[in-house]
Design a protein around this nucleic acid. Sequence first.
RNA 1: GGCGGCAUAGCCAAGUGGCAAGGCGACGGUUUGCAAAACCGUUAUCCCCAGUUCGAAUCUGGGUGCCGCCU
Length: 263
Amino acid sequence: MAAPQDGVPPRPRRRLVALVGPTAAGKTELALRTAQRVGVRVEVVSLDSRQLYIGLDVGTGKPTAPERARLPHHLLDRIAPAETFTAGRYRRELEELLPALWGRGVVPLLVGGAGFYLRAAAEGFIAVPDDPVRLREVRHGLVALATDELRARLSSADPASAARIHPNDRYRLQRALEILELTGQPASRWNAQFRPHPVHGAQLCVVHLSPPRAVLHERIAERAARWLTGGWYEEVQARLGEGFAPDCPGLRMLGYREVVEWV
RNA sequence: GGCGGCAUAGCCAAGUGGCAAGGCGACGGUUUGCAAAACCGUUAUCCCCAGUUCGAAUCUGGGUGCCGCCU
């Protein structure tokens, strides 16, 4: 990932600030307020795996239209409730998005609670080629297998990974096998060669918000109540009405699962 | 007041004489493309008292509490 440096002298190249913390910690609020005070232009880049869903707004606490009007937000509303996003894809999207922001002189502010996505930004992942068609083929073959079988295959093909992954952790067993099949190299080999690095070598500053647990619980309860009277139920009803299965990834998220049952 | 039913973990809930299922939650851990996820682990003197029995959440008696019906 070479980055030819041309003109553009200003010092704070590629700065990236992350504001992370649990639900209801007050991140959005803080982001909006600080954005107005600091002397630089700030735009929010969502660091939230749930707000990626189109049409699931209320229960994900997605920034409202007025909030978005005050401050531009990125990486919201990318997939349908039936789809799944991944941390790897998040990294790629950041790679595409960030240069445009920096180019306009804005400091991107990553806001959200998805720890794994923060890691995607700060460290990245091994560069396994992911041609969607092949990936689908490979997966198709693997999901059909019993966990025992996955385990057996992995321990003979990639013992190092097999030793590291819990025997019941079907998902990771499968992924390790997937990497092997996709690349011909064991996952353990890829991991050994991997060097973590922030997106585009950005200078990343992470701010953690961690209010006391009691305060958090109270706020979460208060917020859930507000959402329920604020159209959450109707939102779920609408999505189901559009034909999304009650057990599709978007509707299986914490909170949504319960509302779906209620509907 | 009378009759009947129920009382098991924070919540839901199996279990009718032999060391108290399970689910959700909570808490702790792990984590290299699901991450508010997944996986692993922890989480109960079975409402109280007395009795029967080698042994009781389970049987008996008496309390207490809740629910329903009746006067």
